Simulated scan of single mutants.
Amino acid sequence: MAPATTVPSATDIEVPETLLKKRKQNEKAREEKLAAVAAARKASKAKRKVIFKRAEAYVKEYLSKEREEIRLKRAARQAGNFYVPAQAKVYFVIRIRGINEIAPKPRKILQLLRLLQINNGVFVKVTKATEQMLRLVEPYIAYGEPNLKTVRELIYKRGYGRVEKQRVPLSNNQVIEQALGKYDILCVEDLVHEIFTAANFLWPFKLSNPTGGWRTRKFKHYVEGGDFGNREANINKLVRQMN
């Protein structure tokens, strides 16, 4: 009769030390991953509160400025004077003509302004130097003073950011924070509020031809019934026709 054989239990089998180490490493990595996810959720929740509070503050600021403008206009009218608004801090500039028969200097300025194609639009900070540049390329552009509604609609509808020289859609606030967090710009509403700081971060806007087309083949100044040149506040109407 053959002797009975005994099967070693699982507890009797010696696990190799390398396998034990690997299990411990995997367990540690899992715990670290869970901790990181929990920390990220907590940070995201805190950031959402900050963003919400900022948005509320911006709304109050915009309303306060609007009321102050109305008050100053009324006071000037009652005193029999004219109210002259402060000079614009930023222009929105749209390229409306191509490069045929364009001189080297205007061509270079359009490149510096990043207006490389027809219907490209950019925000430009108003300085003495930029105003001189705009005058030199005026036959090829339309520009003016964008209001808050225009800035917000452009960024939300057609906004792309420049991230490591790449054109990246502003699909979430993380894109903005990674590029502009050092300026304390964390979200789209921060970007709208600080458009003067962040103008170079925004990729040139690609607009469509205006509804109904251009008025005069773009060869006359706006004040003469044409299309090119400074439209002041009327740039907002043009942007809506092209957005």
Rank of each mutant, 00 (worst) to 15 (best):
A35I: 04
A35L: 03
A36L: 07
V37G: 08
A39N: 04
A40Q: 15
A40V: 10
R41D: 12
K42T: 09
A43E: 14
A43S: 12
S44V: 04
A46H: 14
K49I: 03
V50F: 09
V50Q: 08
V50G: 09
I51G: 01
I51D: 14
F52S: 08
F52D: 14
K53M: 10
R54D: 07
E56V: 08
E56L: 14
A57P: 04
Y62D: 01
S64M: 04
S64F: 11
S64W: 03
K65M: 08
E66Y: 07
R67V: 13
E68P: 05
L72N: 11
L72P: 09
K73P: 02
K73C: 08
A76W: 08
A76G: 11
A76M: 02
R77A: 15
R77T: 14
Q78F: 10
A79S: 06
G80K: 02
F82Y: 12
F82S: 06
F82A: 13
V84W: 03
V84H: 09
V84T: 02
A86E: 15
A86K: 10
Q87Y: 01
Q87N: 07
A88C: 12
V90L: 14
V90S: 11
Y91K: 08
Y91M: 03
F92C: 13
V93L: 00
R95C: 00
R97F: 03
G98Y: 14
G98Q: 10
I99S: 14
I99C: 05
N100V: 11
E101L: 10
E101Y: 13
I102Q: 00
I102V: 12
A103K: 13
P104G: 01
R107W: 06
R107G: 07
K108P: 04
K108Y: 03
I109S: 00
L110G: 01
Q111W: 14
R114C: 12
R114H: 05
L116S: 05
Q117W: 11
N120Q: 09
N120F: 15
N120C: 08
G121K: 06
G121I: 15
V122K: 01
F123I: 12
V124K: 00
V124P: 00
K125Y: 14
K125R: 15
V126G: 01
T127A: 11
K128P: 07
K128T: 14
E131A: 06
Q132G: 03
Q132I: 00
M133D: 06
R135A: 12
L136Y: 05
E138I: 07
E138A: 14
Y140K: 00
I141C: 11
I141W: 03
E145G: 00
L148C: 12
K149R: 03
T150H: 06
T150F: 00
R152F: 02
R152G: 03
E153S: 10
L154W: 02
K157N: 15
G159R: 00
G159H: 13
E164S: 05
E164G: 02
K165G: 10
Q166P: 05
Q166F: 06
R167I: 04
V168L: 03
P169V: 06
